[in-house]
């Protein structure tokens, strides 16, 4: 095959792969990465991933089988990216008033790794299409078709990578809270002991509470995960703000489990006291893949969740 056709395939693959990575490099409420150095780091890794994907097809066609070794090396580098992202976020987490928690951080770092694979695969599809079609068609036609194939692959892969939200697996509604002596309860679920009357007054004035009622046993098991609950309080605090400073432990947002129903009761002192915004923030919290459980996937799980004597929702605690 002429060099110009390989060059066209590699260039098109490189461009589409890099653009696909750039398109996924967006800052949201998590504000990460939200600084130029972060963008440059991730774009450069995306460029390298796209280059490897774009070069691999022409290399294999020229019987340069060492290209496979380079792909393996790339996979190792991307795993290293995940580890570095995780280490970096763990370090930053110690300085958060409401930390993300290890499960959330694990999910974020996996996404960064996966996006590099997406750039590589997009470039590979584009490059392969241009290379194959370039043998039968004119390059002026093969290149646009290769670009379209790459875009299609990027769209499909990015859609496959979209995770579910908490609102997809449970009902999120406002909840009542009250004090019984110094103990704070959200609809019968014990939250914490607040010893100072002034703090109790502030909590009653500024606090908000919500209940998350799981739709099925899988959602119930997932919401019980401590990492998932930490992600809920972190996202709520990140979006609504938090009415606390260092050392004011009694104002820490909490998500506790109602044992009888499996519902999660969340309490927070937000800067912006808006119940609708809180419910929306909770519904949009990602369902962490490391926290997801599916007990009914086993025979024992199906048997356990068929038992008729399970307490009804809202039943009084013993």
């Amino acid at each position: 095959m002429p060099l110009s056709e390989y060059l066209a395939a590699v260039t098109a693959g490189l461009a589409v792969g890099t653009v696909a990575r750039a398109a996924l490099l967006r800052s949201d409420y998590r504000q990460y990465p939200a600084y130029p150095h972060g963008y440059v780091n991730h774009l450069t890794m995306g460029l390298i991933a796209a280059a490897l994907g774009a070069v691999s097809v022409p290399a294999l066609l020229e019987k340069q089988y060492t290209a496979v070794t380079f792909l393996a090396l790339a996979a190792q580098s991307f795993r290293q990216v995940r580890k570095e992202e995780r280490d970096s976020l763990v370090d930053l987490d110690t300085e958060e008033l409401v930390p993300r928690g290890g499960t959330y951080i694990d999910g974020i770092s996996k996404v960064f790794e996966a996006r590099n694979y997406l750039a590589m695969l997009t470039a590979l599809v584009c490059s392969a299409t241009v290379t194959v079609l370039g043998r039968r068609l004119d390059l002026a036609l093969a290149v646009p078709m290769g670009v379209l194939a790459g875009i299609g692959a990027a769209v499909l892969l990015s859609r496959a990578m979209v995770g579910r939200k908490v609102g997809d697996v449970c009902r999120v509604r406002p909840a009542e809270f009250h004090f019984l002596g110094p103990s704070l309860y959200v609809e019968g679920a014990y939250m914490m002991n607040v010893g100072l009357p002034a703090s109790r007054d502030l909590i009653l004035k500024q606090g908000l509470a919500a209940a998350l009622e799981p739709n099925d046993p899988a959602a119930r098991a997932t919401l019980a995960n401590v990492g998932q609950r930490q992600a809920l309080v972190h996202d709520a605090a990140a979006i609504l703000g938090i009415y606390m400073d260092i050392g004011e432990m009694e104002f820490t947002p909490l998500a506790r489990l109602d044992h009888a129903t499996g519902a999660v009761m969340l309490f927070i002192l937000p800067q912006e006291r808006d119940m609708d915004a809180l419910l929306q923030a909770l519904r949009n919290t990602p369902l962490l893949e490391s926290a997801w459980r599916e007990p009914r996937a086993t025979r024992a799980g199906r048997m356990a969740y068929r038992r008729p004597e399970r307490p009804e929702k809202g039943a009084p605690k013993p």
Binding site: P182, M192, V194, G195, G247, E248, M249
Partner: peptide, 12 residues
């Protein structure tokens, strides 16, 4: 509690 970054709990 503020100096020690701790919580205050009330006993019965």
């Amino acid at each position: 509690s503020r100096a020690l970054q701790a919580a205050v709990l009330e006993l019965a």
